[in-house]
Simulated scan of single mutants.
Amino acid sequence: MPIVNGAMVQGLDRSQPTFDPVRWRQVFPGHELQLRQLRRWLTSLLPNCPARDDLLLVAVELGANAIKHTRTGNGGRFAVEITWHGSTVRITVVDDGSSSKPHLVDDPMAEHGRGLQMVRHLSMRTGTAGDDRGRLMWADLPWESPSSELPAAFPAAFEEAICAGQVHLRRRFPNICTWFGRQTLCWWALPAPPAPNEFLTAVSAEDLAVQLAALQGPQSESR
Rank of each mutant, 00 (worst) to 15 (best):
R170L: 10
P191V: 00
L57V: 15
T128A: 14
D131Y: 10
R36N: 13
A189I: 00
L46G: 04
C49K: 07
L200D: 00
E221I: 03
L116T: 09
R14G: 14
T128W: 12
T83F: 01
E160P: 02
D96G: 02
A156L: 15
T92L: 13
P17M: 11
T201E: 05
C177P: 00
Q166P: 01
L150D: 00
L46A: 07
V9L: 13
G76Q: 03
G86M: 10
V60L: 11
F19I: 05
G6S: 09
F78Q: 01
V210I: 14
L62R: 04
L190E: 01
G115D: 02
V93T: 11
Q37E: 13
L33Y: 05
R133Y: 13
A156I: 14
A129V: 15
L200I: 03
R135H: 14
A59G: 03
F180L: 01
G127R: 08
R170Y: 03
Q219L: 10
V89R: 03
L38Y: 03
A164W: 07
P102E: 04
L38H: 04
T43R: 13
T92A: 14
S99C: 09
L136T: 14
W179D: 00
A161E: 15
P29L: 05
G73R: 06
L215P: 04
G30Q: 04
V105S: 12
G130Y: 08
L136R: 13
L185H: 10
G127Y: 05
A209T: 02
A152D: 15
W179N: 00
T83W: 01
K101G: 02
Q26P: 01
A192Y: 00
E61C: 06
P2R: 14
P151Y: 09
A129H: 13
E144H: 15
C177L: 08
L62I: 07
P142S: 09
S99Q: 12
A209P: 01
P29R: 03
A195V: 01
A161T: 14
F173T: 01
S145P: 10
L57G: 10
R23P: 00
R14V: 15
I176F: 00
A66K: 01
A7D: 06
H103S: 10
L62Y: 06
G97K: 00
M109G: 09
T88L: 13
T18K: 14
G63F: 04
S222P: 00
I82L: 15
P194F: 07
D132Y: 10
P193Q: 05
R77I: 02
Q117M: 12
P142T: 08
R39M: 07
R182Y: 07
V203L: 04
M118I: 15
S87E: 14
V210Q: 02
P142R: 10
N175Q: 15
